[in-house]
Design a protein around this nucleic acid. Structure first.
Length: 354
DNA sequence: CCCATTTGACCTGG
DNA sequence: CCAGGTCAAATGGG
């Protein structure tokens, strides 16, 4: 136990240090004429570091502590099962599946982080709902949902059995606008892809057919393309924000996009610690989720909103965020300068450990 | 033959 | 009981 804890501490420290290092790099990077790719990556790494750190913190926080029990909900499955039920992993050879286990599963599922995105896709690129998000998904079901025109598809991580990755997603095409898909993600990726996605944007060669039968193939180029377009569009958006002081809107945009290429990885934490995300939301207004004009064709990752959905979901932290949402901009600065980490900032958490 | 999707059956929570 | 979610047998592509 104690050794567990110190291992966690080590990892935590590691992550934080890493985050800081990367943040420094980013700081340097910001001085030079911009190189989107690097920046993207740096930002993602920073986020990833903090994310992991927070996960560790969450994991080791006694339930009675500051954090509401719901906090535990946002842990990835691997961590949840860490102390509790045995994961069933490879045990899944098709034999005996006790009722008990099923129950645990559904409970576990319930406890998973859940968040949603809305994505607009072009007709060519993914009407079948196979928009790529950087992960390998395997479809395991489809269901007609009452009151919706289109069936809902259920996907789970391809590596569920091999790596015990319990991330799942549901894809539901919007009734009104068939080019828009509501995607509900559940659980974070604990598979290798989950962690790799943070650092390595998939180096895929030019993909002629984004729309192959296989839901599999990821089209990073598309995403990069979209990124460019998104950036253009962002200009407008930042104007909307009315924040002239914003030193580097693109940082923001790429971060956001980072979320798109690896949303599973980042978003759930964004719930916890990304003021700016909420921000964007508030500034684009909830109703105008589909702020992109129809002329803004292809593949647009239209908008992302984070949304605690299950009964436990997202604790106090979120409400903090929400309140931040009401007051404009200030904490933007914070998020735009992750570099200047205030020593007090994440570290007043010592309480979690003792 | 392996692996992914399809699809009807089954399970579960409300 | 019903709607939503998942399972797993059948099917098909590579």
């Amino acid at each position: 136990m104690e050794s567990d804890l110190s291992w966690e501490q080590n990892t935590l420290i590691n992550e934080l240090i890493q985050g800081m290092e990367v943040a420094k790099k980013l700081k340097e990077d910001l001085k030079t004429p911009y190189l989107v790719g690097t920046r993207d990556m740096l930002v993602q790494r920073i986020l990833s570091s903090y994310e992991k750190a927070l996960l560790i913190l969450n994991a080791s926080a006694p339930k009675s502590q500051t954090m509401s029990p719901a906090t535990a909900t946002s842990l990835p499955d691997s961590l949840i099962s860490f102390d509790g039920s045995p994961m069933r992993e490879d045990n899944d050879d098709g034999v005996i599946k006790g009722e008990k286990e099923v129950k645990t599963d559904s409970k576990k599922r319930k406890m998973m982080t859940k968040w949603m995105e809305q994505i607009r896709v072009s007709l060519e690129s993914g009407v079948d709902g196979s928009h790529e998000d950087g992960y390998n998904w395997r479809k395991y079901g489809q269901k007609d949902i009452l009151g919706t025109k289109y069936p809902r598809s259920y996907y789970r991580c391809t590596f569920r059995n091999t790596q015990g990755c319990w991330a799942t997603k549901q894809v539901q095409r919007a009734d009104e606008d068939p080019t828009i898909f509501d995607i509900t993600y559940r659980g974070k990726h604990t598979c290798s892809q989950g962690s790799n996605a943070t650092l390595i944007p998939k180096p895929l060669p030019e993909q002629e057919k984004p729309h192959s039968h296989n839901t599999y193939i990821h089209n990073v180029n598309q995403q990069q393309e979209s990124l460019a377009m998104f950036r253009n569009n962002l200009t407008v958006k930042t104007n909307n924000l009315g924040n002239e002081e914003m030193p580097c809107p693109f940082t923001f945009s790429s971060t956001l996009f980072g979320c798109m290429t690896q949303e599973n990885h980042l978003l759930p934490m964004a719930l916890d610690n990304d003021p700016f995300q909420t921000h964007l939301l508030s500034s684009t207004t909830a109703e105008s989720n589909h702020f992109l004009s129809p002329s803004f064709q292809v593949n647009e990752f239209d908008w992302v909103y984070n949304m605690p959905c299950s009964e436990f979901d997202i604790p106090d932290i979120i409400s903090t965020n929400t309140s931040a949402t009401n007051s404009p901009i200030p904490e933007f600065n914070f998020s735009l300068h992750p570099v200047e980490i205030n020593p007090n900032f994440p570290f007043n958490t010592s309480g979690f450990f003792s």
